[in-house]
């Protein structure tokens, strides 16, 4: 009986500590800007003591949370490239942060140059990655409307090992300068099929805008 009383007392104290934290912590205003104080990737890499891929995952989850919070509020994602670059420093082979971060910058923030700069930093670390080359081409095509650069990156992707069959098709279409809207729709359809849920939302919107039915 005394054991149960002690356990109940311990549980009550933990609950009280939680209540104190919840009621006394300073208001959350401004907390969304905390990524401003996120340390550099090089520093985190050294502090991770051999567990840098797990640290990269934590930074990735924080970046996704940051995106989700701002998506519901002010639609500003200024720090997204900062946190995604940190993920890249910690785990250079992790491609998702470059793809997602550059997509957000180019498509959601309408800053394609920043988006291309982010994904190119990933491509420099992974020159054999068909996916990063393809996504760079995608950004050039859809966001910057630089069809020559897009064709170059699609061709680069088509020469990289392990690329899926559709990469060859896009490389061929882009070099033949096929109808720009048709190719854009095809590219967005690919995002709809392979992107994460946030990217799929944007793809649906863009396909509708381009006058296509889903």
């Amino acid at each position: 009986m005394r054991l149960w009383i002690s356990l109940a007392a311990a549980a009550a104290l933990v609950a009280a500590a939680g209540w104190v934290d919840a009621s006394s912590r300073p208001p959350r205003a401004g907390e969304l800007d905390e990524l401003l104080y996120y340390p550099s990737g090089t520093f985190v890499r050294q502090a991770a003591l051999g567990y840098e891929t797990a640290a990269a995952d934590l930074a990735w989850l924080r970046g996704v949370q940051y995106y989700g919070e701002h998506r519901l509020t002010d639609q500003r994602f200024d720090r997204i490239d900062h946190v995604m670059r940190i993920v890249g420093e910690l785990d250079p082979k992790f491609e998702e942060p470059y793809v997602f971060g550059s997509f957000v910058l180019a498509q959601e923030m309408k800053q394609p140059d920043r988006g291309v700069a982010l994904i190119r930093s990933g491509l420099e670390k992974n020159p054999q990655s068909w996916r990063l080359a393809f996504e760079t081409g995608f950004l050039h095509y859809v966001c910057r409307h630089d069809y020559v650069a897009a064709a170059h990156y699609f061709m680069l992707a088509a020469h990289a090992p392990g690329h899926p069959e559709y990469v060859d098709r896009f490389a061929a279409f882009a070099s033949q300068k096929a109808g720009q809207d048709e190719l854009a729709v095809l590219l967005w359809r690919r995002v709809l099929a392979t992107g994460n849920k946030y990217m799929q939302d944007v793809a649906r919107r863009e396909i509708e805008r381009l006058g296509e039915t889903l």
Partner: peptide, 19 residues
């Protein structure tokens, strides 16, 4: 929450945690 990279995250945390 991982937007499609769940297996990687479980692998990383699993290997790091066990070590």
């Amino acid at each position: 929450l991982a937007l499609g990279v769940g297996p990687k995250i479980v692998t990383d945390f699993g290997l790091a945690g066990s070590s």
